[in-house]
Nucleic acid binder design. Structure first.
Lengths: 209, 209, 209, 209
DNA sequence: TATGAATGAGGCTTCATTCAT
DNA sequence: TATGAATGAAGCCTCATTCAT
C-alpha cells in the first residue's frame, strides 16, 4: 500500500502555499501571477515564500507534481480495471478528466504539456523526477484499463490507439471549454450535453473487442 | 468573391512587422517576447512599432487575424467539397492542420483558443470582429465538407460529431507534439508514424455514411 | 594623432552618469552603492540608467576605462621621456599616481587590480578590450621612461625592475593612505612628508645608470 | 610571556566558525558571502551563528583579529632579531608575508587596511582593541628587526624607511598576484621568479649599514 | 510617418537579522 | 546554548508605454 511520510509542518505549509498559488495561476495564468500575489494571498511575506520555494518555477513544478499525484490517486481509487465493463471504465475516465479540468485547470494542462525527460535534470530535481514517475504510472494505469479490450494487431498499434484516445479526450474537453460561449451562441446546446454525447460517440466509434 | 482592399504602404508595413512578431512569439512565447525584441528584429524603433500597433495585445490579435485568414484561404484553396472522397478530404484537413501547427504554432493555438464573442468588443475592434467572422467561415466550411457524409439523427447530433472530430484532431496533434520525446523514448515510434496512424484510425472509427 | 569621435548626446550623458557613479563608488564602495543611488544622484530614473548601462558591472567597467584613459593621457601630456632627468621623471610619475589616488581612488585601484585578459571576453566587450589596450600602452610608456636608465643584465631583468618599482610605488601610496591616522598618531609626521621622503629613498636606492 | 586564557567551549566554537567564514570570505569575498553560507558550511543554524557573532561585521573583525595574532605569533616564532644576518631576516619576512597572502589573503589585506584608531570604539569593542594592540606589536617587532641595520639620520627618518619598505613589499606582492596572468602572458616569467628577484633587488637597493 | 529619449511601475530574488521556544 | 520560522528592506533589472520633435 502506498504510504506517505507523516508530513511535518514545513511540508504542510508548502502545500498550503502551493494550493493558494494554484488558485492564482488558474485565475490569472502563471505569467500574470506575481510572487507578491502569492505571498499576499497566503498571508506571508515574500521572503517567507522564498523559504518554501527556491523560485517561481519551483512553485509551478511543485504544483504540477501535486496535480499529477492526486490525479493518479483518484484514478486508482475510482477505477478497478476488470471489475466493470469497458464502457463504464471509459466514461469514468472521461468524467475524471473533465472534473479535473474544471476543478484544477492547471493540473489538467500539465497532463498534456511537455514533461521533462532529461536524465540530468531528473537527477537534480526531485520534484521533476517525481512528475516523470507519476506520469509513467498514469500512462500505464490507463493502458491497463483498455489493454485487453482495444482491438489491435501489434503492440505499437495498441500504443497508437491508446495515445490517440487519450489525445482525443483531451482535445474534446479543451475544445468544449474554450468554445463554450460560441457553442451555446451558435447551436444552443450546453457544454455538458456536448461533452456527454461526444464521449459517447468517441467510445462507440472504436470497435472494441 | 472575396475581395481584399488594395493594401497601402501602411498595411504592408504592419504585415511585415506582424510576421516578425510571429516568429518571435513562436520561438519564445508571447509573454517572453518584448516589444523591444520585435522592434529590433523589424529594424524599426520602438516608437515606430507603436505607430503600427496600439499595444502588445493588438499585435497578438492582428497575428491571430492573419493566421485565421490565411488558414481559411488555404482550406478553400486546397479543398473543394464534393470533388473528392470523404477520406481524402478528411486526411487533407488533418494534414493542413498539422502543417499549420508546424509552421505557425501560434496560429494553430488560436484556432482552439477562446475567441471573443462579446458584441460590444467586436463593435469597437475591427480586428477582433474579423477574427470572429473568419472563425465562423472556417467552421462552416469544415462542416460543409462532412455535412453529407457524417451519419446523424438530428442537426444538433451533426454539430456534436463535427465539433467532436475537430477537437479530436486538435488533441491528437497537440499530444503528439508535446509528447514527441516521450513517445520516442517509450515506444520507439516517430511522431509522423503516430500521427498518420492516429488520423487513419480516427477516420475509420467513424461510421461514415 | 589620436582622434576622438565627436561625442554625441548619448555619449555625453553616459559620461556624466559615470562620473556621478564614480563619486559614489569612491565614497561608499562599489558593493555598497546601489543603482538607485546612482540614478537618484544623476537625476534620472533607474530605467534610464539602464538605457545607458546594461548592468552595474558595465558601470564599473566603463569607469575603469575612463580612468585608465585619462591616466594615460595625463602621463603622456606631462612627461616626455628624454627631455628631463630620470629623477624628475620618476618623481613626476609618483606625483601623478598620488594625485590619482587622491582625486580618483577608484581609478587608482583599477591600475593594479586584475585586468581581464581572456580573448573571448575582450572580443565581446569593447570596454574591456579598451581597458586592456590602454593598460598595455600605460605599461609601455612607463617602461619607455626608465628603459634606458635602469641598470640590468637582461630583458627579463629589466621587466622585473620596472614592475617592481611600479609595485613599490603603489604599495607606498596605499600604505600611506590607509595608515595616515596611525602614522600621525604614532610618529607625528604628515602623510605628505612621509610620501615625499619615501619616493626619494625609493629613487635613490636604485642604482640608476 | 604571552598567556592565553584557557579557551572554553564557546571560544573554540567561535574560532571554528570564524575559520570557516575565512575560507568563504577568501574564496568569494566578504560582500559576496552570506551569513547563510557561513552557517551552512559550519553545520549550524543561522540563529546559532548569531549566538556567536553579533553581526556580520563582528565576524569580519574577529577574523582580522585572528589573522593579526597568528601573523604576530608566526613572526616571533620564526624570527629572532640578532640571531641572523639582515638579509636572511628580510627575506624571511618577505616569505612569511607571501605565504600569508597565499594561505590567508583576507588576513594579508587586513595588514594594510585601515585600522580603527578611535579611542571610543576601542573602548567598546574588545576585538577592535585587540587588533589595534597586535598591530602595534607587529610594527614594533618588524622595526626591531631592522632598527640597527637601516642607515638613517633621525628617528623619523628611520620610521620612513621602515614603513616604506613595508609598503614596498606589500605592493610588490599584491602586484604580482593581480597581474600574474598578464605577467606570464607578456613576459613569460613566473610569479615566483618575479617575486624572488624583486625581493632581492629591494633588499640590495637599500644601503644597509 | 518616424524616432530618440525617457520612465513608472513592478517583477524576481536576496539577505542580515529577530524572536519564541 | 541552539534553532525553526519568519521577515523588512532593499537590490538588480525589465518592460510596456509615452512624448516632444
Amino acid at each position: 500500500m502506498a504510504r506517505k511520510k507523516t508530513p511535518n509542518l514545513e511540508e504542510l505549509n508548502r502545500d498550503k502555499i502551493a494550493e493558494i498559488a494554484r488558485e492564482l495561476f488558474t485565475l490569472q495564468g502563471f505569467e500574470n501571477t506575481t510572487m507578491n500575489d502569492v505571498a499576499k494571498k497566503a498571508n506571508i511575506s515574500k521572503s517567507t515564500l522564498y523559504v518554501y520555494f527556491m523560485n517561481k518555477e519551483a512553485v509551478r513544478n511543485y504544483l504540477a507534481m501535486m496535480s499529477m499525484n492526486s490525479f493518479y490517486e483518484e484514478l486508482t481509487e475510482k477505477l478497478q480495471p476488470g471489475t466493470m465493463p469497458v464502457r463504464q471504465l471509459f466514461m469514468k475516465i472521461c468524467d475524471i478528466l473533465l472534473e479535473l479540468k474544471e476543478k484544477d485547470p492547471f493540473g489538467f494542462a500539465v497532463l498534456i504539456e511537455e514533461i521533462c525527460v532529461e536524465d540530468e535534470m531528473l537527477m537534480q530535481d526531485r520534484v521533476l523526477a517525481n512528475i516523470y514517475e507519476v506520469g509513467e504510472k498514469i500512462n500505464q494505469f490507463i493502458f491497463s484499463c483498455f489493454r485487453h479490450d482495444l482491438p489491435h494487431r501489434s503492440e505499437s498499434d495498441l500504443f497508437i490507439k491508446e495515445f490517440s484516445l487519450w489525445g482525443s479526450i483531451y482535445g474534446i474537453i479543451t475544445f468544449a471549454d474554450n468554445k463554450e460561449k460560441y457553442l451555446t451562441k451558435a447551436t444552443g446546446m450546453t457544454k455538458v450535453h456536448f461533452l456527454e454525447n461526444s464521449f459517447s460517440y468517441l467510445f462507440e466509434s472504436v470497435n472494441w473487442k
